[in-house]
Design a protein around this nucleic acid. Structure first.
Lengths: 201, 201
DNA sequence: CAAGTACCATACCGATAGGTACAAAACTTG
DNA sequence: CAAGTTTTGTACCTATCGGTATGGTACTTG
């Protein structure tokens, strides 16, 4: 029975434009006008397709982890724990310093202080971040169980160590650090990794 | 010649209130009404005493580094490089997780993505962060020159490593990490420090 | 090609943003 | 205590915020 006028824009393309703006300007620094201008649609269309600004942002977060943040899921699938963390760290550098896209990390940015009106958004981002960190911890627990990590190692500590580094990398990138500089930081940091100095100095 | 009605509030106390609000809510998430309410003064008084919102924020940044951020300058004065970085890292944990104050770091938060209207604020914060990092690098260069760090060590890399960790600590704190968890991260990270495993595993 | 349906565009909503005009109030100086 | 100076409180400014009502438009279905 239904039919209706067809949508004149592509949903995913519009979502990508919104992601770009939120990534570059932050949730609070982005207005509906910024969004509609970047997405090439007008306000009612945005509302009909994505709901409120906050709902749109949540959909953008999904797109972020599926797209630019997809390296993380791939990294967890690496055979050895050391590889997992190397891929996470180098992936974080690429994510946050690739030319032509905003610097820094959408999640890291939005896990931090914001006005009361955006607090629910922040909470959602924090929850995602904690879930990611827990996923890494489980991966490292598995590695420990199979002997891929020493018996006296602490997966929770190790996972938090890696996440602290990726968080720091995102901040450094936002402040202008180059990928080369960050790769050297990672190289140094990995000397603390419990399977010894496998990447060698 | 001059005289005039005396100011009915304390400048530094008002600045501290403003710091608290900016720290908790971020520059963009804080309105003039939030500020005047917290400072206990009205709008024209705020303007007369501190200028625009942006000028007030810059004064708050100064107060931040002199007050809560003061540990950093003290850390640089420690006799050995290892002590310097230990104090910086543990100080960062205390700064960002002390109960009763906002979680996270004012500088780290504001070095990241924001709307175009706040971009000049962000640039200022980034400049401060880079200056701090350069200060640490010079301190480590000095340590290397005096043999306190190995001859093959790289002060720039080491300074960036430590700053990446403090940045990451701030993000972790904002996401709810406890001081204990972060101390264990620091303990692990210090195994990568070039003077060896001085803090022991 | 008539009926039904979903989308698009303009124009608008109340609320709030940062910032200020103005006059009353509280002080110092002569 | 009069003149001059600075702060305070109220009331208001324009611009923009996120969100929506409305009516025309383009399509699918029968």
């Amino acid at each position: 029975m239904p039919g209706g006028r067809p949508r004149a824009f592509d949903l995913d393309a519009a979502l990508d434009r919104a992601l770009e703006v939120f990534w570059r300007q932050g949730y609070e620094g982005t207005s509906l006008s910024d969004l509609t201008a970047a997405m090439g649609i007008n306000r009612p269309s945005l509302y009909a397709a994505f709901g409120t600004k906050e709902e749109l942002f949540r959909r953008v977060l999904d797109r972020y982890v599926e797209g630019p943040g997809g390296f993380a899921a791939e990294a967890l699938a690496a055979p050895r724990a050391r590889e997992v963390v190397e891929k996470l760290l180098t992936g974080a550098i690429a994510l946050t310093t690739t030319p032509g896209r905003p610097r820094g990390c959408l999640n890291v940015r939005h896990a931090q202080a914001c006005g009361p009106e955006s607090e629910s958004v922040r909470q959602g981002v924090v929850a995602r971040k904690l879930a990611d960190q827990a996923g890494l911890r489980r991966r490292l627990e598995e590695a420990k169980a199979t002997g891929d990590l020493p018996a006296d190692s602490d997966p929770d500590q190790l996972a938090r160590f890696v996440t602290t580094l990726t968080d720091g990398i995102a901040v450094q990138a936002a402040a202008g650090a180059t990928p080369e500089q960050l790769h050297r930081v990672v190289e140094l940091a990995l000397r603390a990794w419990p399977d010894g100095d496998a990447a060698g100095r």
